[in-house]
Computed example of a mutant assay.
Amino acid sequence: MTSETKFGTTDGTWFLLGDAVTQAAGRRGGYLARLRDAVASIYPDRRLELVAAGRAGDRVPELRDRLFAEVLPRDPAGVVVVVGVTDVWYASRGQATPIDEYRAALADIVRGCRERRVPVWLCTPMVVGERIGVANSFDEGLDRCADAVRQVAATEGAGLVDLRRRFRDELTRTNDRDRAHGLLTVDGVHPNDAGSRLIESAIREALGMDVTRGGERVLRHIVLFRWVPQVDASELASIERQFRQLAREIPGVLGFECGTDNSPEGLQQGFTHAYVVTFRDEAARDAYLPHPAHQAFVDRVKPRLAQALVVDFWGDADRKG
């Protein structure tokens, strides 16, 4: 078995081996929680478990040791090594990992998995600081470590998830104010919601998760409104027209539906109107939310709302024919 093994073709437990980022990744909104949701949706007929094997402060040599002591004895179906930034970041404590030791530990990880026929993917370290216009303090060391991960993955036959490149490309595109943090991380290191989505997307793509398995997938954006009493029928009709127009104006929107509640269960809690916006993918949704036309709509309805509730989920595309 190699890293070319297609994810989801067999049942089993996959381990995400990493540091504090992975330790917290199973929480709501974390990259592992998002991966679990994706797996449950895409592979409902498979017994696939994703396990976080994260421990705060672990450098690559500690990841290697835990792989042999804790992960491989559990007969994993696959391993993704989410290499953290600690090997470089701890230079401030005099505990940076020498690059030769770093490279050797990575090679040990891949060889240990290969000997047991366990597919393995290596992730490059992400960021310590989000600035693009000038160098962050640890950029040189992180670039050196990321190059080592790429080299080991290529020479030893492991899969590669180039998170550093993905983060830097996204920051180049979005960090026009050269902020130190707040776009993809909460503090320059630990991912926020956007960073977690980026990690989840990169790992999902690298593992080859078949998002079209069982049919094309689309992102449903569910909006429930409870209006203040002063909003009358004519204004509601005008608001609906404006909401519907967004689907025509903004790229990536595949559909729009709306309706008034008629449930007999009595569980509405005052919500009377439901709206469903269907997006091609998360990128389309993320472009829709700050779009000027959508923001103008939000500015209009916000003073008229007593309460709003929004949930998003992946669903099956409507089948034709």
Score class of each variant (00 low, 15 high):
Thr13Pro: 02
Arg66Gln: 04
Glu156Arg: 11
Asn192Val: 05
Gly182Arg: 07
Gly266Tyr: 11
His181Tyr: 04
Arg204Ser: 12
Arg150Gln: 10
Arg117Lys: 07
Ala293Cys: 13
Pro61Val: 13
Leu50Met: 04
Gly57Trp: 01
Val79Pro: 01
Val231Asn: 13
Ala317Ser: 13
Arg64Phe: 08
Glu265Cys: 03
Ile203Tyr: 09
Ser201Trp: 00
Arg226Asp: 12
Ala20Trp: 03
Arg168Asn: 08
Ala56Asp: 09
Asp318Trp: 10
Asp19Lys: 07
Gln242Phe: 01
Asp187Trp: 02
Lys320Pro: 04
Gly159Asp: 05
Arg47Val: 01
Ala287Cys: 05
Leu122Ser: 06
Gly29Val: 08
Ile42Gln: 03
Ala284Thr: 02
Ala154Trp: 07
Pro290Asp: 10
Val71Asn: 01
Val127Gly: 05
Gly129Tyr: 02
Arg244Lys: 12
Cys258Tyr: 14
Asp286Ser: 15
Leu122Val: 07
Phe271Leu: 10
Asp210Gln: 03
Glu115Trp: 03
Ala154Tyr: 09
Pro251Phe: 13
Arg244Tyr: 05
Leu67Gln: 01
Arg304Ile: 05
Leu171Glu: 05
Asp58Tyr: 11
Val39Gly: 00
Ala53Thr: 04
Leu50Ala: 07
Leu246Tyr: 07
Trp121Pro: 00
Arg164Gly: 06
Cys258Asn: 13
Leu122Glu: 13
Leu198Tyr: 00
Cys258Ser: 15
Gln95Lys: 14
Gly129Asp: 04
Asp143Leu: 14
Pro125Val: 12
Asp19Glu: 12
Arg220Lys: 13
Arg217Val: 03
Val60Ile: 15
Gly315Met: 11
Gly78Leu: 13
Pro290Trp: 07
Val127Leu: 15
Val186Glu: 10
Pro229His: 00
Pro98Thr: 08
Gly78Pro: 00
Pro264Ala: 14
Phe138Met: 15
Asp176Glu: 06
